[in-house]
């Protein structure tokens, strides 16, 4: 039962409508940042206030919610948000990617491929991909309006000139539907290819800056690069110490005082699914 002291899903209906209008506009113009009247939420900025408002606006009693933080379902932030919605929106929650209809995420895209009908809600700290290069909001808006993205290419040039390669490893800029430059939020660039033509709907919410943007299903999302320095994702020589995967994004852990390193999947659900399957003697997914 939802907590009677609050409206369903915490926000009042007018606010949810306003956010849905912003989402519809965002879906209609892929990659464009739509301003919305962000509300104060019962947690600080930087903890997912943008993502929570988006989730609150779209969630219904039939939904099944999964929340991950850096791939894990069991971290404080993920647990808190999942409990919050279980309480105010009366929804089922899950840790399994396959079962979820709405997945709110901080800094990862699940390894398990998403399907049509699923919605991935990103928590976004800085929605403006050009912000570090151009501090003036009036100017970045003009650059988006006119598709003038040379300056982003300049930043990649600079990276190669300094490091011999494009050194950016997360929040790697993408061009959505051949039109808008977009920050994919601080996901590792490993996840960038998953954004491209994904069957699920991607919604991005930035609470502090009060912006919503979206990538509709099957929309082309291109990671910027140079012809002679093409976009590449991270590779590991090791495999996951728990499930043996060579396909997933690995976190490095130091496990003793001698500095012994262990690599494990960042996506806890994916890792557990594989371990479970191996325990049952089946082929890993």
């Amino acid at each position: 039962m939802p907590d009677g002291a609050y409206n369903y899903a915490y926000l009042d209906e007018q606010t949810k409508r306003m956010i849905r209008r912003a989402i519809l506009k965002a879906v209609a113009v892929p990659g464009y940042q739509v301003p919305f009247g962000g509300r104060e939420m019962p947690l600080p900025y930087g903890w997912g206030t943008g993502g929570i408002q988006v989730t609150a606006a779209i969630i219904g009693r039939d939904d099944t919610l999964k929340v991950i933080d850096q791939g894990a379902d069991d971290t404080t932030n993920a647990v808190s948000i999942r409990r919050f919605f279980a309480r105010v929106a009366d929804v089922a929650t899950t840790t399994r990617t396959e079962e979820a209809t709405v997945i709110q995420t901080r800094h990862r895209v699940p390894e398990t491929p998403l399907k049509e009908g699923q919605i991935l809600v990103f928590q976004v700290p800085i929605p403006e991909p050009l912000r570090m290069l151009e501090p003036r909001e009036t100017e970045t808006r003009t650059l988006h309006a006119l598709s003038e993205y040379g300056v982003m290419q300049v930043s990649l040039y600079e990276s190669i000139a300094r490091h011999g390669r494009i050194a950016k490893t997360y929040n790697y800029p993408v061009l959505v539907n051949g039109r808008y430059m977009m920050s994919p939020s601080p996901i590792p660039k490993f996840d960038n290819p998953k954004l491209d033509r994904n069957p699920a709907l991607q919604l991005y919410g930035a609470g502090r800056e009060k912006r919503i943007y979206a990538v509709p299903p099957y929309t082309p999302v291109k990671s910027l690069d140079f012809d002679d320095h093409p976009f590449e994702i991270e590779r590991w020589t090791e495999c996951c110490a728990l499930c043996g995967s060579r396909e997933s994004f690995l976190d490095e852990m130091i496990v003793d005082d001698e500095g012994k390193r262990l690599y494990v999947c960042s996506d806890t659900d994916y890792c557990q699914e594989r371990q479970g399957a191996q325990a049952q003697g089946k082929e890993a997914p």
């Binding site: 040379g150 300056v151 300049v154 930043s155 600079e158 000139a161 140079f226």
Partner: peptide, 20 residues
């Protein structure tokens, strides 16, 4: 940004995509 990037910006703005 570096001098090279300063000079190259116009080229990149009009679509140059070969770093070398």
């Amino acid at each position: 940004v570096s001098a090279g990037a300063n000079i190259g910006e116009r080229l990149m703005a009009i679509g140059a995509r070969h770093y070398g």
